[in-house]
Design a binder for these strands. Sequence first.
DNA 1: AAACGTGCCAGGATCCTTGC
DNA 2: GCAAGGATCCTGGCACGTTT
Length: 489
Amino acid sequence: MVARFLHGLDNIRMSDILPLIYHHRSGYPSINSANSDEQNLLFVTHGSPDEIRNARPYMSTWATRLVAVEVRRQVGRLTKDDPTDPTHHVHLRAATNERSKAHVVTWCDLGNWSLKKLESCYWRRGAGDLAMFITEAAAAPAFEGGVAVVRAQRPHPIIQSSAMASFIISRNRCANGDLAMILGIWHFACKSHVDVKRVYCHLGNYVAATTSRAALNSMTAGSMEELRADVGSALEGGEMPVCLILDNVQEYFEVNEQGIGRQNELKVGTAGTSIVLDECAPGAFDAKDHHDRVAKNERRLLTHDALFDDLDFPHLRRVIPLHWARVLVEFSPHFLPLLNSIAALFRSSPVARRRMREGRKMKGQPLGTNGERSTETQGMERAVKDFENQMGLNPELTKAFLFWIRGDGASYANILRLTKYCAPIGTFPNKVATPEIWHTGATDLNSFLQVYPISHRKGVSLESRLPMTLSTRTQDHRFTRTDLDAFAI
DNA sequence: AAACGTGCCAGGATCCTTGC
DNA sequence: GCAAGGATCCTGGCACGTTT
C-alpha cells in the first residue's frame, strides 16, 4: 500500500500532497503564536532541523540541507576526470616523475580548451548540473519563462563556469585543468605582476606562478621531444614535415642584482617557430626535382604575355565582385546580416577552388630563441642551423629535401643573401625563402598606430603622445571614416 | 630617511596521490 | 585508513632605483 503510493501508482501522489502541506496556513506559524520565531527558519543553514516544529520551515530547511549535500557531492565528482571525454583532463600535472600516473600538461590540452566547451561540459556531465542550476540562479540577471536571459555584455554563463572552476580547484588543488592552468599560463604570457598572480591564486582563479613555470618547462621539453620524433619518422618516410618561421626579438632587461660587469641591456635574438606542413603533395619538397626544374630554366618563358594568358578571367569575374560585395556589406552595420551568405558563396563552388580541410588546425611549435641577430648574415646562418638542430633536422638526412624558411622582410632578404653567398661552397643548401604576408600587414598596422596621433583632442601636443600598447590604441581610438581618410592622405 | 616596487627562486609548509 | 612521497603553494630574501 505504502509502496504503491511512494512509487506514484495511486491516484494521489506526492506531488499532490507536498505542496498542500507546504502551503497550508497551519504549517506556518502566525505572528501571534507561541513559536512565531520559526517564521525566520525557512532556509536555515545551521543547527539541527529536527527542532523546527512547523511543517513549512521544516520542509524548506530539510530541502536546503539535501541540496547542499548533493551540490557538494556533484562538485566533488567534477574534480575527477570525465570518463566520457578522454580529451579533457581535469588534472593537469605541471611536473611529474615515474611514480605519478597523472596526465602531464601538453600544448594540445591548452589548444583544445575553450570557455564554451567548459560551460557545456559542466551541464553535460550531469555530475555538476545541480551546481550549475544553483549558480545560474545566482548569476543570471533575469529569467523569462523559466529560462535564464543571457546578456550580450558580461554573459553570466562565463561567470558561472569560472566560478565552478574556482570551486573545483578549491576542493582539490590538483584539479586545475578546467580554467586554472590555462589562466596561469596566460598570466605568465602577459607578464602579469607577481602580486597579481599571488592574489588571484588565493582567489582560486589560477594556479600558483611556480606551477605555471613548471608547466611551461615540461610542455616545452615534452613537445620538443615529440617534434623531433615526428620529424625523424617523416624524414625516414621520404617527406619533409616542417617549415620554419623566423622573427627577431628585442627585450630590455634591467639588472637589479649586484655583479661585476652587469648592466641593463637590450637582449636581441632570433625566434623561430616550426610549422607542420599540411596537405602537401607527395614529394613537394624533393630537392632533386626542384633543382631539375631550375636547370630547365623554364622561367625564361614566364613573360608578361604568358602570365596574362594564365589569368582565368571567368573566375576573376566571379570572385572580384564578391570581394566588392563583402567590402560594402562590412562597411555598413545595416548589411551585416548578409555577411554569412557572402561567406557561404566564397566557400562553395564555383568560387571556391581549393578549400582547406574542414577542421584543419595549424600545428606550430615554438623553438628556443637564440641570441643571434637575424639581420647579420652569419648570425642568420648560425640561427637557422640552431633551429634545424632543435627540430632534429639532421644535415645528412635532409640533404634530399628543400627547407622552407618564412619570415619578415629583413629575415627573408637575409636568407636570400645567404643562399646566394653560400651557393658556391654549399654550406647553406636547399633553402627556399618566402616573405610572410600577414607579417607585413601586422607591421603596417603597428607603425600606423605608432605614428598616428592618439586623438584629435584639442591641446594634445605631439610630445604628449605617450607610447601605448597596440590593443589600447585600437580599442580606445575607435577609428572613424575621417581618421582612415586622414591616414590615407 | 624610510618605505615601496619589482621578478625570481630556494626551500619549507601544505595538500594530494599512490599503494597497501 | 594509513604512511610515504610527490606536487603544489607560499614566503621571504635579494638588490637597488623610485617614491613618499
